[in-house]
């Protein structure tokens, strides 16, 4: 029920006050942000059931009130070094709308959640070229807040269709190697 209410509320206010709001979180010393409209909830670290035959960044699946959702480790997703879980480690439950109208829900493990910030469009700059190290399509832009720069993520790209295709690709790869 809470979920439905929230989505309704989100729909109601969408493109309104919440449009420029971003949830910022940390991965190591780096600050990242996601649109608050894409965040369903934040929960503490729970036991996650590992999945075989998936890339290392797929930590497994967990039970979100009766629904099983996949959980990824954002550190590993962005090829950062793995870290021990701390008191602050938590799971951000993100949702993205697929092109076919369905909704993808996925948990993302982050080191810690910071705050919800207003970042007006004017304060968002397109991401500079980093070379091929970091796929640009994951990045919405660079948000400038006070003296910090926050990497704003394109969630649909991080957890959405392409991600799925990639996981599928990774599995095919494993299978091919096995065959």
């Amino acid at each position: 029920m809470a979920i439905i209410e929230r989505t309704e509320a989100a729909a109601h206010e969408s493109r309104g006050a919440n449009e420029n709001k971003f949830l910022s979180f940390c991965l190591g010393s780096e600050h990242y942000g996601v649109e608050i409209l894409r965040v369903r909830e934040i929960i503490g670290l729970l036991a996650v059931t590992p999945l075989p035959q998936t890339p290392a960044y797929v930590k497994g699946v967990m039970n979100l009130r009766g629904r099983i959702i996949p959980v990824i480790d954002l550190r590993l997703r962005f090829s950062l070094a793995a870290a021990e879980a701390t008191k602050e480690t938590c799971i951000v439950v993100l949702e993205a709308n697929e092109q076919d109208g369905s909704q993808t829900v996925m948990g993302a493990i982050v080191d810690s959640v910071r705050e919800v910030q207003d970042i007006p469009k004017s304060a968002i700059e397109p991401s500079p070229e980093f070379g091929c190290e970091i796929p640009l399509r994951y990045i919405l832009g660079m948000g400038k807040v006070k003296d910090k720069v926050i990497v704003l993520l394109e969630i649909a790209e991080v957890i959405g269709m392409r991600e799925r295709a990639q996981i599928a690709g990774a599995i095919k790869e494993t299978e091919r190697r096995a065959a």
Binding site: L51, V61, I68, P70, T104, R164, I167, E175
Partner: peptide, 18 residues
């Protein structure tokens, strides 16, 4: 239950149960 929409079929696993 299925393992979330994003998961492709994993061979040897048909789903999950709580």
């Amino acid at each position: 239950k299925n393992l979330g929409d994003t998961q492709p079929q994993i061979r040897g696993v048909s789903g999950g149960a709580i």
